[in-house]
């Protein structure tokens, strides 16, 4: 086996995995805290990319610089969606209700994207993103490496917020035992709205990074929702570290199987890994970040 090729494949997997991780962390957080499978997650990602595109076109804002704005806009949209629609699903405690509501929301939001931006393929690329770096014999894709770095920074910020900030502790407390958290003065409805908003914000931020790397259209939402789902099942629910591990695993499985088995097979191996994980360790590598500590 060629050592350089193996190392190149591992690096490619790592970079791809970083992007999968960031795109999945919002999905993981909502699932862990609210118990809602958010089928509108892929549309949130694309909405982030489209808002970034608009900011670039209207204000000339570089996509990376647009991340805070996109985060805020998506956080407001996500929070409003939770307040108006998803809260009903949470109150009923029914997985099916949450699936139906978020699926319906995804269809509406996707159509709004088409109305606003059209169905055409778009790209957020900047010429500087197309740089290449050579480290030893390994070629590093500048755009994807930038995406990985941005992902790590955002995931680290989320991890710090969840563990070191008061609001983070309130989110974790609500996820573990919402009734007890309420007795301690935590307004769980507010926390649910905040969690949904933050998750949507992270989805939007990942949309910027995905849009910098790959072209996108309003019809890619299912692909990114599915990737987030697989990442969460592999890594575990509710924590940035789980999403990071799941995403990296997904990236490595994808590139290694493509390189050494055949480039048409990554989906086969990804779903085999998913099945295996569901059989052997149904809660993923790290388990449920919140329930485990109850």
């Amino acid at each position: 086996m060629n050592g350089t090729l193996l190392f190149q494949t591992l690096v490619d997997g790592l970079i791809l995995g970083g992007i999968f991780s960031l795109s999945a962390v919002g999905f993981s957080l909502i699932f862990g805290v609210l118990g809602v499978v958010n089928l509108a997650h892929g549309v949130f990602i694309l909405a982030g990319a489209y808002i970034g595109l608009w900011l670039k076109g209207a204000l000339g804002l570089d996509p990376l610089a647009a991340i805070p704005v996109v985060f805020l806009v998506l956080a407001v949209i996500g929070g409003a969606l939770q307040r108006t629609l998803v809260s009903a699903a949470v109150q009923r405690g029914s997985l099916m209700t949450s699936l139906l509501i978020t699926f319906g929301a995804s269809l509406i939001l996707r159509d709004l994207l088409i109305l606003a931006f059209g169905p055409d393929i778009q790209s957020l690329s900047s010429t500087w993103l197309l740089r290449t770096y050579h480290v030893g014999g390994v070629v590093i894709d500048g755009a994807r490496a930038t995406g990985l770095l941005a992902s790590l920074v955002l995931l680290a910020m989320l991890a710090i917020a969840l563990h070191a900030m008061k609001v983070g502790r309130a989110i974790r407390a609500t996820a573990q035992q919402s009734f007890a958290a309420g007795l301690c003065g935590v307004d769980s409805n507010r926390i649910y709205t905040l969690t949904f908003g933050v998750s949507a914000g992270f989805a939007g931020a990942s949309g910027i990074i995905i849009g910098m790397i790959n072209p996108f259209s309003p019809f890619d939402d299912a692909y990114w929702t599915l990737n987030a789902f697989v990442t969460v099942v592999l890594g575990g629910v509710g924590s940035p570290v789980g999403a990071l591990l799941g995403g990296l695993m997904l990236g490595e499985i994808s590139t290694l199987s493509s390189q050494y088995i055949g480039p048409r097979f990554p989906n086969v191996f990804i779903f085999c890994a998913l099945l295996l994980m569901l059989i052997v360790r149904p809660n993923g590598l790290l388990g449920n970040a919140y329930k485990a500590s109850v």
Binding site: D12, L16, T255, S258, Q259, P266
Partner: peptide
């Protein structure tokens, strides 16, 4: 490659 390509590195 798969029908929807997100990575062609290999």
């Amino acid at each position: 490659l798969p029908e929807q390509v997100s990575d062609a590195s290999s």
